[in-house]
Design a protein around this nucleic acid. Structure first.
Ligand SMILES: [Mn+2]
Ligand SMILES: [Mn+2]
Ligand SMILES: [Mn+2]
Ligand SMILES: [Mn+2]
Lengths: 159, 159
DNA sequence: CAACATTGTTAGCCAAGGCTAAACTATTTG
DNA sequence: CAAATAGTTTAGCCTTGGCTAACAATGTTG
């Protein structure tokens, strides 16, 4: 280990900005992000399929491809994966449907997404920007922060 | 195109929550996220190397591996890439250094990271949670939102 | 200074998430 | 109902970002 004094950051005063966090904590930050990246795309697909079913009555691969701006081949491959994960059911050339697990994930993701989006709007971010930011941020917001965002939004609406 | 009426969301009233955004806008959301994912790891590496240089005087591959909780082989491969991108200079078995471009990226990333972190703390999020959330969120926050976050934090500090 | 410990590199593997091209199925329409 | 159009799948390719195992270089210490 090169980093011979892992807690130097806690003791060494410095002319620079914030000190480095302890190694273990720092590692946890990156590990959590890597973890989020593993599930993020899946959540977006499931959430979108749920939205299409709710608002359109069916979820076709072509819609997903259009809405994600991705090729149909990419969607087709992903659907196979969602199938293996038992999040969706699909018959060839037919609309997709969500399994129980898929519906649960869709609801959770949608709720989280909405809290982040409404929070950003409450903060004063323009709608188009808020939507773009929320699409990425949603996967990196802890439950603790989510709670605070929700309370902030409610507070804002009362005034 | 299956989605025969792409703007239905603007007109169709619904018992459900928020309607689907128009296809083009929706596609833009996902595309922006995919874009952020391409640069995010690189930014984290460059930012960390800058921090190690600032706070430790040198940036060794082993430190990076420890702080990112990743194998040394992974770091070694990434350094080759950073080299090709002319963000760092490196001699085998010696500390890394940032090029001009690398320093610029490190500063920008660090500033952005700090704004998000300080904003989360100002919101009332616990430090450890704020650090984890900021590590992921920072890559998905627009300049517009960043400005608003910064002003919010300053406001908070005055009271 | 030889041995050992630490650090860095390389080779080879894998999964995820993109792409294009080609083939196949379903639907619409002349 | 045949042909054209739209939608779906498959095959094969690529890059990114992980990993382990083996080896090489450097640094430390008895
Ligand atoms: Mn989402
Ligand atoms: Mn998303
Ligand atoms: Mn960062
Ligand atoms: Mn980060």
């Amino acid at each position: 280990m090169t980093d011979s004094n892992p807690n130097a950051s806690l003791t060494a005063p410095s002319i620079h900005g914030d000190a480095l966090p302890p190694v273990e904590q720092h590692a946890q930050q990156y590990a959590t992000v890597r973890n989020a990246h593993e599930t993020e795309l899946i959540e977006d697909y499931v959430e979108l399929i749920g939205d299409l079913l709710t608002h359109r009555g069916e979820a076709r691969a072509a819609d997903i491809a259009n809405r994600m701006a991705v090729s149909q081949a990419t969607v087709s491959k992903m659907i196979r994966r969602l199938n293996e994960l038992e999040l969706v059911t699909s018959k060839p050339y037919r609309s997709l449907f969500l399994t129980e697990a898929g519906q649960k994930m869709a609801e959770t993701s949608r709720a989280r997404h909405d809290i982040v989006l409404h929070f950003l709007r409450a903060l004063g971010v323009k709608d188009a920007t808020a939507r773009i930011d929320a699409e990425g941020m949603e996967h990196h917001v802890s439950d603790e922060t989510l709670d605070i965002m929700q309370r902030f939004t409610e507070q804002q609406q009362k005034s």
